[in-house]
């Protein structure tokens, strides 16, 4: 079957088998290997991407279901060589160790911060509760998401980072 999916603002047309899952479509058909595949059973959350603005576990969504829709992956976060605040914060706080869970964590973190720019630790832990990290014990990931909130809120004062984040959202929405 033929599908047309807009990924990170760019439209892709591909002919696929209906059984192809979105995570494999992104990686194998489009070469966007930032999205990782871990458990393949919707438990670990390494494969989290946004589908029409909502984070989903892309190992458990058919690519066919994304036909005509907007997908956003971790590749969209950095813009013009500048990291998204969540990426910078993961570096600052050592939120990534082996890095396997990181793409999914980043996509959930970005979504959470877009909805709640100043989340409590409890809210952060709830938001990432469907994602597994076997390295960090989550402490540094939670710290990184808090740090990202602080970075974004500080940046709000001069407008630079907020403008960047807004631009990314607009592109995905268009």
């Amino acid at each position: 079957m033929d599908i047309t999916v807009t990924v990170n603002g760019r439209q892709y047309r591909r002919t696929i088998e209906p059984r192809v899952l979105l995570a494999y479509f992104l990686r194998d058909e489009l070469g966007l290997t930032g999205t990782h595949l871990g458990c393949d059973t919707s438990n670990c959350g390494a494969c989290v991407v946004w589908l029409d603005g909502l984070p989903v576990k892309s190992c458990t969504v058919l690519a066919a279901m994304a036909d005509g829709k907007q997908v956003r992956t971790v590749e969209s976060l950095a813009r013009n060589g500048q990291l998204d605040p969540v990426q910078q914060a993961f570096i600052d706080c050592h939120g990534a160790q082996c890095g396997f869970c990181t793409p999914g964590m980043l996509m959930t973190a970005r979504w959470l911060l877009d909805r709640d720019p100043d989340p409590s630790e409890e809210r952060i832990r709830e938001a990432i509760s469907g994602q597994l990290c076997r390295c960090t014990g989550y402490e540094n990931i939670v710290r990184a998401i808090r740090r990202a909130a602080e970075l974004s809120n500080t940046a709000d004062d001069d407008g630079s980072s907020a403008a960047l984040a807004g631009e990314q959202r607009d592109e995905v929405a268009s």
Binding site: L54, T60, S129
Partner: peptide, 9 residues
């Protein structure tokens, strides 16, 4: 029920 990401779907 499940987790926030699964609950989106």
């Amino acid at each position: 029920i499940a987790d926030p990401i699964v609950r989106n779907r």
